[in-house]
């Protein structure tokens, strides 16, 4: 009798323990699952960003280490540098020269891909090939093709009787060349994003337009493009964040990697790199950190403007749709 109750008691207790364990299991598991991300992100993402702010208010040298507190001195110094503003101009210019043609070309490619093609996968993969070429490799190929004196492009221009272009020496041509590298790598990728969005556009819209006698170009402009607005804005936002930080292509555009003799194609990220690690005036971590924070703020502002634009366009878009 007593043994029996003991066994029962043990069983009951075991269930109770099981319940408690189970409760803890349910409660704690989610936190356990998300914690690796948050812990690692705090260490490797959040901390560097915050510590950048700390470094930016000190005189700080790569070898000498932390020096005197200088308040906003580094920010004032960076903002007073002509090269900083040139690099800002260059980053925006390269960004615009790559984003605008890229989006237009990607839209057209997507529209063609959206037709009833034979062997769809082949064409889709075809436009995506450049995506697997590393930016460094892209830059090496294009910097060769865009050589000022002995490059392929100028050679071809010469054959059709045109003057050679100073792809490295001039400001705008150098931006065009670098933008071409970005476009080469990303146009096909964005075309696929647009293609997917196009396929989500209900086909009856087109049927209705056809009945109204709209031609193909008109359908594209008045149905396809407006329906793609959110995707368009998305692509623009991501290419803004990526484009304003461009480094690989301009860094590798010539063998010196300093952005040209008059900083023709020096970008902000290159400027940050040069302040911190680069050949001329390097090692100034305080300056580099201040410049990094300024770039961070610029990206946030541009991002917010984008977001506001998205909201406005999206709401006006849905209003007109309904």
């Amino acid at each position: 009798m007593s043994t029996l109750s003991l066994v029962e008691e043990r069983a009951v207790r075991r269930i109770a323990i099981g319940h408690t364990l189970n409760r803890w299991d349910v409660k704690l598991s989610p936190y356990l699952y998300v914690s690796p991300f948050f812990v690692l992100f705090a260490l490797t993402g959040l901390f560097p960003l915050l510590y950048t702010a700390y470094v930016s208010v000190f005189d700080w040298h790569i070898i000498g280490g932390q020096g005197d507190f200088v308040g906003l001195g580094n920010f004032e110094w960076v903002l007073a540098q002509e090269k900083f503003w040139i690099s800002l101009r260059n980053s925006f210019s390269i960004f615009l020269l790559s984003a605008v043609p890229q989006v237009i070309l990607a839209l057209i490619i997507a529209a063609v891909l959206d037709q009833n093609l034979r062997s769809k996968t082949f064409w889709r993969m075809g436009v995506l090939v450049p995506y697997v070429v590393a930016p460094v490799a892209v830059a090496l190929i294009f910097s060769n093709m865009f050589g000022d004196q002995y490059g392929l492009i100028n050679n071809l221009l010469g054959r059709i009787g045109l003057d050679p272009v100073g792809w490295h020496s001039q400001v705008v041509p150098s931006h065009l060349a670098i933008a071409t590298m970005v476009n080469f790598r990303w146009t096909g990728y964005n075309a696929l994003i647009f293609l997917a969005a196009m396929q989500a556009v209900p086909r009856d819209y087109y049927e209705a337009a056809m009945l109204d006698g709209a031609g193909r170009v008109r359908q594209f402009l008045s149905i396809t493009v407006p329906s793609l607005r959110p995707t368009l804005i998305f692509v623009i936002i991501t290419s803004t964040i990526g484009g304003l930080q461009i480094f690989d292509e301009p860094r590798m555009y010539d063998s010196a990697g300093t952005g040209g003799a008059s900083s023709q194609w020096l970008t902000i990220t290159m400027y940050i790199y040069n302040q911190g690690f680069g050949p001329a005036g390097g090692g100034q971590f305080g300056h580099a950190a201040a410049a990094a924070w300024i770039l961070f703020l610029i990206i946030i502002v541009v991002g917010l403007i984008n977001l506001a634009a998205t909201r406005t366009i999206a709401s006006s878009g849905s209003r007109s749709a309904s």
Binding site: G166, H168, S169, V171, A261, S262, Q264
Partner: peptide, 13 residues
């Protein structure tokens, strides 16, 4: 050297 390059090579200044 950059100053020289701007005049001699780039011919932008």
């Amino acid at each position: 050297q950059n100053a020289i390059t701007r005049v001699d090579v780039d011919q932008t200044e």
